[in-house]
């Protein structure tokens, strides 16, 4: 999570995912860093958590329109569910980070001119 990579391209990611599967969590040696904020799981996690937090807080202030929802505290329950889902995504990203190597191998298997 130290910093976002300058350039994170096809080969890297392809390697990363394989490494991610092969030896997750062990690759913390020199010359490697995680995708961090650009990991989609962190983006999803952040958005869902923020939404969850806002809805949960909102359920304690203001009108809950219980006549509309048939008596259910909809903001509260949805907020808590979103918060849980968001934290789960961030935990997943933390537990199995995408590791980005510093060297950038060239993609040779593409046909010439493409």
């Amino acid at each position: 999570m130290s910093h976002t990579p300058e350039r994170y391209d096809a080969e890297d990611a392809r390697d990363d995912v394989r490494e991610d599967v092969a030896d997750a969590g062990t690759d913390t040696g020199s010359g490697r860093h995680t995708a961090g904020a650009f990991d989609i799981r962190n983006i999803i996690g952040a958005l869902l958590s923020i939404y969850g937090l806002i809805l949960t807080l909102a359920s304690f202030v203001g009108d809950q329109s219980l006549d509309k929802t048939g008596g259910v505290r909809a903001n509260l329950w949805t907020g808590l569910a979103l918060l849980a889902a968001g934290l789960a995504f961030m935990a997943w990203a933390k537990a199995k980070p995408i590791v980005v190597p510093d060297h950038i191998p060239h993609d040779d298997d593409r046909p010439a001119g493409h």
Binding site: I54, L55, A58, G62, S65, K68, T69, A74, N75
Partner: peptide
């Protein structure tokens, strides 16, 4: 409009 409270409506 008929069933969602403000908050969920925005979502």
């Amino acid at each position: 409009r008929d069933v969602l409270p403000n908050g969920l409506l925005g979502l």
